[in-house]
Design a protein around this nucleic acid. Sequence first.
DNA 1: AAGTGGTCTAGACCACTAT
DNA 2: TAGTGGTCTAGACCACTTT
Lengths: 250, 250
Amino acid sequence: MPPNETIDRASYLPAYAQLVNILKDKIASGELRPGSQLPSEAQLCERYQISPMTVRRSIGDLVAKGLVTTTQGRGTFVKSVHIGEVSFGLGDFKGLFGEKGDTKVRLLGARIVRANKRLARKLSVREESRVINIRRLLINKDVPVLFHEEYMVYDPSLPIVEAEMEATSLAGLFSGHATSDLKGGHLTIEATTLDKEEAELLGGEVGEPAFRLAHTFYDFNDNPFSWGWFIAQGKRLSFRTSLGIFEHTA
Amino acid sequence: MPPNETIDRASYLPAYAQLVNILKDKIASGELRPGSQLPSEAQLCERYQISPMTVRRSIGDLVAKGLVTTTQGRGTFVKSVHIGEVSFGLGDFKGLFGEKGDTKVRLLGARIVRANKRLARKLSVREESRVINIRRLLINKDVPVLFHEEYMVYDPSLPIVEAEMEATSLAGLFSGHATSDLKGGHLTIEATTLDKEEAELLGGEVGEPAFRLAHTFYDFNDNPFSWGWFIAQGKRLSFRTSLGIFEHTA
DNA sequence: AAGTGGTCTAGACCACTAT
DNA sequence: TAGTGGTCTAGACCACTTT
């Protein structure tokens, strides 16, 4: 478990990764405390008999992991932990899906509506223009876990529903192959409570805590083409992360 | 705005960053669509007259940004967007603090309690052992924005309250200088609703949507020493992020 | 066999910080 | 001035995928 103090050139693990592990362990064990300075790159080269570019790669990895900071002319230092820099992944959201095959999508409705003011602004279309509204329920092992409501611009030049629906298909977005028409989007996570309809669909109680994941997706002309949100019960979902050094970083 | 098609060796911007921008723009403009293959590293070396290591650094940056993937023996390809890989930061949380000077912390109470079963498990102490309980209210411009409840192990060998309180002081954790006794921790974000007490403290309504950010912090012996949570009204907070290519990536 | 990315060398010069 | 990290070169050899 304790890594050797030398680089094993025969190891399947590349030299830079071995050095990362060595330094990481020194930090995790407290041998290198937050604020203390790491050996200089030249010293690490000499100590472990590896070339400068390899040492730099190792240190770059540690910087990327948020474990150290470098300052030109000063040196490399172990960072102390800051909550503000933590990031959470949406992988937890994906966990609602479970194993493939367990998950089904039930289409609750698809219709064409006229854009009100808010919708017109969100999709950059004129008020009263036609917009596709799609409502889906995601079911995992017969348990409804996610409600999705989405509005998409209606482009008469396209074969409507199938193409549009595939564009932001749940499976594609979360785990599989998204379309190449999607340039990117914005997401926000909000706290909310279930309303009557959502509670019925998800099998929960009205007023129960829930997450709303709102999305806007853009095409390669930077025009929004989809706006909507996912609703998940709070009890079925939480976002987890770690600060500092933990197994999962290994 | 459109970057030149050559590397400017006189630019203050390093060569690898210039190549990153060139490739990023080709992706953003749709010239390189999701799924399509980038020129090989050798071709990029030739085309832009830079050495292999420099090209690799550029591509490494794009991989880190999640814009491309590389497969040994196959090539480098533009990724399509996947929600599951998105991550969002706690910077939004930090936004509750506002400009420095606007923010005050009011100590609502600090006392020593006996650990119940749950608390004993969370802090890895025996049931009935003594634990410090601290409750704070964070106030920004006279508006209460954050309620913090925390339990810490009571170590009789330390000068109690001040040392312990500083260990996870709000200011230190979110923006400033954390102590070097903190190795790391686990965080979870949950959806919840305000109970009566929280509603009174935060000036909200009972049952109103809220976020709970729960934390456990560990020392360098991997012993948990702090467990607790922050409560923020949902209307004062949302977590935002982007997928794909947007300005903020520049 | 040809082409691709993955690792690594052994230096070079530059920009910045400290003394 | 000495020491630090930041960038970059011009190759090398390896592992892997595809034809």
